[in-house]
C-alpha cells in the first residue's frame, strides 16, 4: 500500500466515523423511529363531547342548520386528534358503511376536524358543488378546498384529499349528553407511510 492510498483510506474512515457520530445527536431531535404518536387519539367509549369552554354538548343542542366543534372532555385541545365536527342530518339521508351501524344516533354524526390532506381544520359546512349535483351541505377545508360528505361516512367528494375523514362513533347517554362510543375508524390528520396499516407497527 502506498502512503497516498493509506492517507486517503484513513481520511475516508475518519469522515465516515464523524458522519456516523452525527446520527446520535440528530435522533435526539424527535422520536425518529417510533411513529406510534401519529396514531394517538384521546377518544374512547364513554368520553363526553364538550365545546371549547368545556360545556358538555346535549343531543338537543345539535340542529341541522350548522356544524359544531367539539373536544374530548378534560383533554388538551391542541392535540391533532382532539377537535371534531358534529352535525345532525335527516336519518333517511344517512348512508354509512354497514360496519358503522349505530354510529349516528338520532342522525348526529361526528368526524375528525382535521383535513386528511394538509392538516388544516375544517371550518366550513356549505354547499360545495353546483346545487343540482349536491344540494346538501358538506365539510370544506379552506386551505385547498378538500370537501367531505358527512352523510356517506366522510367520503371525499372534491379537492385533493386522498383519504376519507375519520369518523367518531357517537352515543347519547341517559342525561341526553353526547359521548363517544369508541375511537375513530382511522388515524387522524394528513396521510403518511403507515396511515392505512391499521395501527402502529
Amino acid at each position: 500500500m502506498t502512503r497516498k492510498r493509506f492517507l486517503k483510506g484513513a481520511a475516508g474512515a475518519a469522515g465516515a466515523a464523524l458522519g456516523a457520530a452525527l446520527v446520535v445527536p440528530a435522533v435526539s431531535l424527535g422520536p425518529a423511529l417510533d411513529t406510534e404518536s401519529l396514531y394517538y387519539s384521546p377518544w374512547y367509549r364513554g368520553r363526553r363531547l364538550v365545546d371549547e369552554n368545556g360545556r358538555p354538548y346535549r343531543a338537543d343542542d345539535i340542529s341541522t342548520t350548522t356544524f359544531y366543534t367539539a373536544y374530548p372532555e378534560n383533554v388538551d385541545h391542541e392535540v391533532l386528534a382532539a377537535p371534531i365536527v358534529v352535525v345532525r342530518i335527516k336519518p333517511d339521508r344517512i348512508d354509512l358503511p354497514a360496519s358503522r351501524a349505530g354510529w349516528a344516533p338520532e342522525g348526529i354524526l361526528a368526524y375528525s376536524k382535521i383535513c386528511t390532506h394538509g392538516g388544516c381544520a375544517i371550518s366550513e359546512y356549505r354547499k360545495p358543488l353546483f346545487p343540482p349535483t349536491s344540494p346538501e351541505p358538506a365539510f370544506v377545508c379552506p386551505c385547498h378546498y378538500s370537501t367531505f360528505d358527512p352523510a356517506t361516512g366522510g367520503s371525499v367528494i372534491y379537492g385533493p384529499a386522498g383519504r376519507n375523514l375519520p369518523q367518531l362513533p357517537l352515543m347519547i347517554d341517559h342525561a341526553g349528553e353526547l359521548r363517544a362510543a369508541g375511537d375513530f375508524n382511522d388515524p387522524v390528520g394528513p396521510s403518511f407511510w403507515g396511515v392505512r396499516s391499521g395501527g402502529p407497527t
Binding site: 440528530a26 435522533v27 431531535l29 424527535g30 422520536p31 425518529a32 423511529l33 411513529t35 404518536s37 401519529l38 394517538y40 391533532l80 390528520g189 394528513p190 396521510s191 403518511f192 407511510w193 403507515g194
Partner: peptide, 18 residues
C-alpha cells in the same frame, strides 16, 4: 409527512413529535 417511506420519521424529527 408525505415524503415516501421516511415522511413520518422526518416530520417527527423536525417537529419533535406529532
Amino acid at each position: 409527512l408525505s415524503f415516501p417511506i421516511i415522511g413520518a420519521n422526518l416530520a417527527l424529527l423536525i417537529w419533535g413529535g406529532p
